[in-house]
Design a protein around this nucleic acid. Structure first.
Lengths: 187, 187
DNA sequence: GGTAGAATAGACCGACCTGTCCACTTGTTC
DNA sequence: GAACAAGTGGACAGGTCGGTCTATTCTACC
């Protein structure tokens, strides 16, 4: 029961932070949505700031698992796996619940470079780049470091644009650029 | 005097919104920085929300002028002009005062798609894309619509990544991708 | 030099915020 | 059934928020 309440609060907080922002979401709104007493939140997380960090870390973990899942579903060819990730982005953008990437929102709302949310966002981007690096290396593509940075940039850029446009077009554009980059790196 | 005060408040507000965020910046902080009475702000702008919209519109206008300026400095070749914009991004990211793009922050802090700040951010991205479209068309590049969207995506993505990493590397990566796309489109 | 409009300082309001405290209930385990 | 941890609900504190109001001073212009 203890951990299930904790998970439930975490989930509700994530949904509210995603759809309304970190500062705009009050603690009371989270309690109301989770149907939980205030002390449950403060006993489990200590403060709103710590809850935010926890939400970010959990979300990063979930997202990386999903991304690895999409890659795995695409078969054994790392080349296909990379492209599958961009196709999955397009699906994500079309989800009616999609409202942008939490981590882009986190750096925007916590601009101080030393703040924990900003650090968590940077770590997340490093993890994303690392996945691309792994796939690029497996595919024996040339200049894997640079290529993985570029792929991560494309993914971030597409998500950033999609937050405004709310359609899959940015993902398709990013995909077609990725194809060009992969083709060149595989020669 | 009347309009100079107004401009001064606008500038101070922009700097604070950029460096600390929209919600995190209280009206009193703006007044303190601008050295201005509260009624001066409310007589000129009506509310904090309207001030935010005004700041965004003014910033968009300034940024578009700067971007057109960078392009103009690069000479008459639209191909060079496009690349000059990406080089300018690198300079921007190295500015110690750089703390990301206001418009990316605005959509993050005002996720409601119908909110005025979100609309302003969308308009800004459309204007950026339009500049690229103009340059691509002038350069007689193939598929100018798609290409301009892709260039805007690269610029947004680089700025998004640079907000976390705080160096010019994302701009260089975006530039090298842009070169590849332009090369292909000019055949 | 008098007048109108702009700007000032600062008190003030109600709403909302995070976070604390406490008396009480629930569920589990021995 | 006793003991114990976890959760509950609600009152409460202290602070900040955006915004209003008023009385006063400054400034520019006819």
């Amino acid at each position: 029961m203890a951990s299930s309440k904790r998970e439930h609060v975490l989930t509700c907080a994530r949904e509210l932070f995603e759809s309304e922002g970190f500062h705009a979401t009050g603690v009371d709104r989270i309690l109301e949505k989770a149907g939980v007493a205030k002390m449950t939140l403060y006993n489990n997380f200590g403060s709103k700031d710590l809850l935010i960090v926890e939400v970010l870390n959990q979300s990063s973990h979930n997202m990386m698992e999903k991304i690895r899942g999409f890659a795995a579903e695409a078969g054994n060819d790392p080349y296909d796996q990379i492209l599958a990730i961009f196709r999955a982005l397009g699906e994500w953008y079309q989800d009616p619940q999609f409202c942008g990437c939490m981590f882009q929102a986190a750096v925007a709302e916590f601009p101080n470079h030393d703040s924990e949310p900003a650090k968590a966002a940077l770590e997340h981007h490093k993890r994303l780049t690392a996945v691309f690096l792994e796939l690029c290396t497996n595919a024996k593509l040339s200049e894997p470091d640079k290529l993985s940075r570029e792929l991560a940039l494309l993914a971030s850029g597409a998500t950033c644009v999609a937050r405004q446009a709310k359609n899959r077009l940015p993902a398709d554009d990013a995909l077609s650029i990725a194809e060009i980059l992969l083709e060149r790196a595989s020669k």
